[in-house]
Design a protein around this nucleic acid. Structure first.
Lengths: 230, 230
DNA sequence: ATGTGTGAATTAATTCACAGCA
DNA sequence: TGCTGTGAATTAATTCACACAT
């Protein structure tokens, strides 16, 4: 069987909520920069692009951090969400693959966001090794294990070609990496205790194509879609 | 309130299923290249990284394309899923933003996958315009509307800095683009009929950090997590 | 025999709607 | 009065388990 128990939620925060907390956090940082002291669930939800009931329910899983009749204190909520997400400490990240994508990721400010630091950028190609990217010198993939243990890397970002991804993943896991962010278009096999998230351009495009097609069919007028069914 | 019935699923395919179809398709292409003529739900599910009950339920939404006691014909299933996803036709894609990320995306083979073609790569920076990337000459953002209508672009990929994203999105929508794939770390506002999907590095990292933290807390032994609660 | 297709059961996520606190 | 926090209701997604076609 290919089933796996989907890890019981330890502190009881639903996965769907966890996936939205970063969104709220970003919205709050925006408000904070603008000097807004408090915000209602309606306002915050609107900025984050969700509805207010969902936002309140999500926040209620963290605790009672709002004030009835007033709203949420922006700074306080930023702190609480950051703490919940584990952003009050720093996480070391290694990017494996210094091709176009790997370099784009390294350059991308997204890491700079509180809580993450790029410990190394690694590649298998000797011509790429040594090259300077985002203030880092690209290191050879054979240094992976050393980097992971020396820099206490807990998150590996895989930006290699598809064919190399599983091998690199295995090495990461073997070296002690606990989470993988995979940009290669393959399904990675990892042991139970390792978390994997994937970012897949062509999957996203195909999902959009599905919806585009549906819209196009509708546009031809009703009846068509049904007529196509066997 | 902006409540509205959440678009009735025209052919009744659940969104969660749509999101997995590309995964099955990729797995099937792998089997096809290896010359495998038929595959069971158990095997296909294993390759695609889901469980077999889910796979069968998903496929059942498309129709009865398997044979009891045998499995699914690989080529036939590829065709059916492709058709369902709208990949039997070509979709024109415009990439807006030719920075590191935009160039990486343009170079990325992922588009080459049946069904998509990059109609243009656009940028606002005069120094970038004219540059050759992935066999395309970068065009100026002011040509956006022309490109969209001339090339019948239906999907816009936004790879600009956050600050520019909403403006670019508005122009895409105004020009007739029906779907947006957003790589900028902002929530885009679009009219009802436009689909948006987002790819967000820092959100993914934050979700992984949450799980890493949870694992780390557990590792310290039980009791700790509760002791931290107020 | 074997493995699909699917109702029924279960679990998760969302939304409603309002009691109750500031 | 205004807005949070949350039970209750609803809807969506997953998993079970087995009848039945091949």
């Amino acid at each position: 069987m290919t089933s796996r128990t989907p890890r019981p939620r330890e502190r009881g925060i639903p996965e769907a909520t966890v996936a939205r907390l970063p969104l709220y956090l970003r919205a709050l940082h925006g408000l904070s920069e603008r000097g807004t002291p408090t915000v209602s669930s309606e306002e915050l939800a609107s900025v984050a692009g969700v509805n207010s009931a969902k936002l309140r329910k999500d926040l209620s899983h963290l605790g009672s951090y709002g004030t009835r009749g007033v709203g949420y204190d922006v700074e306080y909520l930023i702190y609480q969400i950051s703490r919940e997400l584990g952003l009050t400490q720093d996480w070391s990240v290694a990017i494996i693959g210094a091709g176009n994508l790997g370099r784009a990721l390294a350059d991308y400010g997204g890491f700079g966001t509180r809580g993450f630091r790029i410990a190394a950028l690694l590649d298998a190609d000797p011509k790429t090794v040594g090259r300077e990217v985002a203030g880092l010198s690209v290191r050879h993939i054979d240094e992976l294990e050393d980097v992971v243990s020396d820099e206490k890397v807990s998150i590996g970002v895989i930006a290699t070609p598809a064919a190399a991804a599983q091998g690199v993943c295995d090495r990461c896991v073997g070296a002690g990496v606990g989470s993988i962010l995979n940009f290669a278009p393959v399904v990675l096999n990892v042991p139970e205790h390792v978390d994997v998230r994937k970012v897949d351009l062509s999957i996203e495009l195909q999902i959009l194509a599905f919806h585009e097609q549906r819209k196009a069919v509708g546009r031809r007028g009703p009846g068509w879609a049904d007529a196509l069914e066997v």
